[in-house]
């Protein structure tokens, strides 16, 4: 009988790993705490580069699943124990499976922007997050009660590279997402002035720099280097932003209709609890530390337990999928031994 792998988390990483493991002839159980699979991707309007809708990308990934993959939703993993040469994985609802290998694909959670209370998320109606913006774009009702917003601001690094919220790491995708979203907004509202408030712009990926250039030259998006100090709401519900333009060395006060906070990535609750449960190593950012970040990014200190996707650090969807395939290969190699 084919060996059995339990994959925890049915986001892009878990789905892709399962699909590839199944192709390799292994039996897979994919456990998901939520009602449906897809993770954050199912709520994401479009991906960059290529502007593929998140749902469409998700469908393509799911096409790889076959009858060898059993999906167990609404199940929160509460215990994972190594017994002799196999693992027992148990869920909160009594679900239990034996596995020859386990893949952690528990992913990330978005930083809770309410923790940066000075930006007013959850207090001022017109302060939203990048994730909210994707949802609004997907629904097609972005700023529906504001026909022509005069100004919109994007705030980079909310919950990333910020000692005050104990997140030193860069979430790396928020920069390109802000540029992508700024362009999308500008396409919808050409008359609107769009500002991006950034510390550094980290345009590391292919086509990223090009889009950034286009955003400035074609779409006239204003990039202001400076970290927001605070925002307040005036009586009309506009958001007044206080920021220092550190290139000009001048403090600015800008009245915006909407403020979009580019929330960073933190390890998901499930990532944290499994790390603690298994006694896996993490670093100060609390993402799981693989056995070797360069050579063995999918192995952990615990033989038979693997990582895939953003539970081992922020990744784009394309990077996540590549990591998932790499994890599948690692599992196969391990089970063959």
């Amino acid at each position: 009988m084919a060996k059995h792998v339990v994959v925890i988390g049915a986001g892009p990483a878990g789905l892709e790993t399962s699909a590839k493991l199944s192709k390799m002839g292994l039996r897979v159980t994919l456990v998901e705490k939520e009602e449906t699979s897809g993770g954050h991707l199912k709520n994401w309007h479009t991906l960059f580069p290529g502007n593929m809708p998140g749902l469409k990308a998700l469908e393509s990934i799911k096409e790889g699943l076959d009858e060898n993959v059993k999906i167990q939703t609404n199940t929160q993993v509460t215990a994972l124990e190594a017994v002799n040469d196999y693992f027992t994985v148990s869920g909160h609802n009594g679900w239990q499976e034996k596995a020859d290998a386990v893949v952690l694909a528990t992913g990330f959670k978005l930083f809770d922007a309410r923790r940066k209370e000075e930006y007013g998320y959850g207090i001022y109606e017109n302060v939203i997050t990048s994730s909210d913006l994707e949802t609004l774009l997907a629904k097609g009702n972005l700023f529906s009660n504001h026909k022509n917003p005069a100004r919109i601001g994007f705030v980079h690094c909310v919950g990333s590279r910020d000692e005050k919220v104990n997140n030193l790491h860069c979430s790396k995708l928020c920069c390109i997402t802000a540029v992508k979203q700024a362009v999308e907004v500008k396409q919808l509202f050409p008359e609107t002035e769009v500002f991006c408030f950034y510390m550094d712009l980290r345009m590391f990926g292919r086509h990223y720099e090009e889009l950034y250039k286009e955003a400035q030259e074609k779409y006239n998006i204003q990039f202001i280097r400076g970290r927001l100090s605070e925002s307040t709401e005036d009586k009309e519900g506009n958001i007044i932003v206080k920021v220092e333009d550190t290139l000009l060395g001048k403090p600015l006060r800008i009245k915006t209709d909407f403020l979009v906070l580019m929330t960073g990535m933190e390890p998901a609750a499930g990532t944290k609890s499994l790390t603690a449960m298994l006694g896996l190593k993490d670093v100060s950012d609390k993402f799981i530390r693989p056995l070797d970040e360069v050579l063995q990014p999918n192995f952990t200190d615990m033989p038979g337990v693997f990582v895939a996707g953003t539970c081992s650090g922020p990744k784009s969807v394309s990077e996540t999928l590549a990591d998932a395939r790499s994890a599948a290969l690692a599992v196969e190699a391990f089970l063959k031994e």
Binding site: E117, E118, T232
Partner: peptide, 9 residues
């Protein structure tokens, strides 16, 4: 107080 608009409001 301004950095915690919840308090101010």
């Amino acid at each position: 107080g301004h950095l915690t608009p919840g308090v101010k409001n």
